[in-house]
Design a protein around this nucleic acid. Sequence first.
DNA 1: CACAGGGCTGAGAGCGCTTCCAACCAATTG
DNA 2: CAATTGGTTGGAAGCGCTCTCAGCCCTGTG
Lengths: 346, 346
Amino acid sequence: MPEQHPGSRPTLEAVAALAGVSRATASRVVNGGDGVRKPLVDKVRKAVEELQYIPNHAARTLVTRRTGAVAVVIAEPEIRIFSDPFFSQQLRGISKELAAHDTQLVLLIVEGPADFDRIARYLSGGHVDGALAFSLHTDDPLPAITRRAGVPTVYGGRPSWTAGPGEEAVQYVDADNRGGARAAVQYLRSLGRERIAYIGGPPDQTSAMDRLDGYRDILPETDPTLVAEGAFTVESGARAMAQLLERRPDLDAVFAASDLMASGALRILRERGITVPEQVALVGFDDMDSVAETTDPPLTTVRQDIEGQGRLMARLLLSGLDRARTGAGRPDSVITPTTLVRRASA
Amino acid sequence: MPEQHPGSRPTLEAVAALAGVSRATASRVVNGGDGVRKPLVDKVRKAVEELQYIPNHAARTLVTRRTGAVAVVIAEPEIRIFSDPFFSQQLRGISKELAAHDTQLVLLIVEGPADFDRIARYLSGGHVDGALAFSLHTDDPLPAITRRAGVPTVYGGRPSWTAGPGEEAVQYVDADNRGGARAAVQYLRSLGRERIAYIGGPPDQTSAMDRLDGYRDILPETDPTLVAEGAFTVESGARAMAQLLERRPDLDAVFAASDLMASGALRILRERGITVPEQVALVGFDDMDSVAETTDPPLTTVRQDIEGQGRLMARLLLSGLDRARTGAGRPDSVITPTTLVRRASA
DNA sequence: CACAGGGCTGAGAGCGCTTCCAACCAATTG
DNA sequence: CAATTGGTTGGAAGCGCTCTCAGCCCTGTG
């Protein structure tokens, strides 16, 4: 490997010279080689190899107006999502898909409300071809920013707001929360359970709302005392379970809107000497690796493919970008299927 | 805000024209305005404002050879670090510092051993000015890659390898693991404890080795039966504690090399009816938010400023980059101080 | 055998920006 | 008062690449 003098990487010009062709032809070869005769292609390829040529990205971007990079925006309030396995898996999927398309991942962490300016500037600066963001609250300034900056954006999780009149519909990827919840409740009913309680998530998150809707689809006339609200955490699940038991000691099944909450509920049930699944059947949601399989008993739960969702977000964005160049329409949002995984808790 | 035709952002030329100056002068103003008279500066600033001018990054990079971006490289085996609050805090610090210097964070996740190629290509491609990586194993290909690519790199955590002859010393940021461990053990001794056990981390991580060294600094002649090995996880801490109790039921103190392991140890101690801190005093390491304060009793532990370390990594890299331009020498590695936080467990 | 047509190739015009250098101006100095 | 100096400004040359367009050659056709 030839030592390169720092700061003097070979240019396309050099490759062309070595291969004995024009810069134009060298460029064609580097970009796929269409319309160039085989012997020339080979010569250029050899020159590229010999010189260890790597295209200058800035120069290319300058003329093509494509950066080959995508921003992943994470807003401050959700910074905790970093320690959230959910998010890291999603990011993982995104990373894989982007890598497969030779696209870079620029991580934009919004550092406080005043920082949206920086993000806006960055997004408007043409540094990236598109953006990926996660489901936000209604008053989040991000959608407006990306729209104004003209940066195609795909959201993870169904946004809680809808596009205004004349605006393009928001693109997002989400699990079939409602369908998954329906399946869980239906399953509990098929087991002969009659007083099925629900431990939900915070009502400002669409995933929580959708799961609740699914529960209600099956049990439209449920007594509200069978429904408790948690916050997707172990602790909140435990609290909700305690509350439910107090209100309805007769319940014979619980559907918790997350595995974490289910594990909290499980702890309470065990403490009270209530057997699972005999006395109370329990179903969770997420099929989170580190939780669902390790509880005692292991959780029956609704699985969603989180990494796949991340992958899909990236794919949706990238295909949208391609399409924009070819003039075709935008792909729709995607709802990924959920499946019920039967283990011992129900 | 003027609607901009998509894909036709104003150029510096336009700003110059509107301000009635040359492109050169407009450029000077945009880049700080040194050596330009006040009235002209104002005129240009106004034009920038009016046109909503944002410099084209690619064009700028093309001539300055600076990208204003830094890569954060995460190798596959450590992907779990994503769910590791340790890592996410460090990343947080990095992000803050970079944002403050208007530098972008490009996340490079190595997807398997075969993927190092892609990383190498990217790093060599001049896409970033520098890189940040995390402490690696001896045979990690990354250091060779960054060196060959000529990309300045700062590591998080003391690397386990040392620079070869003639190579520049590796720059890294690490906590004073050894000093922190010394302080912890010394404190236990000052409490009158005489049989102080140690639960260590995996011996292939320098942080684990350094902490062990610190323990040995104070207790050079310790009976090896007082030393057990864990893996920085709750479970491994529990196992190590059980092992220790079996070997040395007479121990009266435990220093665990992480809070997670300490909490595992705590569980075992409680199960065996051993009181903490009365019968056995316990000290952890890290002062991890979600752990040290919530155990029962809360952990006495060695605190390290993790977010600060991330910040420092970024700062070190950036100042190195600046220095490279001004021709000054490289800054040294940095060891951040640790402090003993006294709570109830010792 | 002249001509049209198609496939390759190379010349050259930028993409938007920074920066060297020369030109200019006013103020200072001999 | 002429010459020098120092501070500003503008002209213009690229940075490395893509891509249009004209030109070339070779084949097929009238």
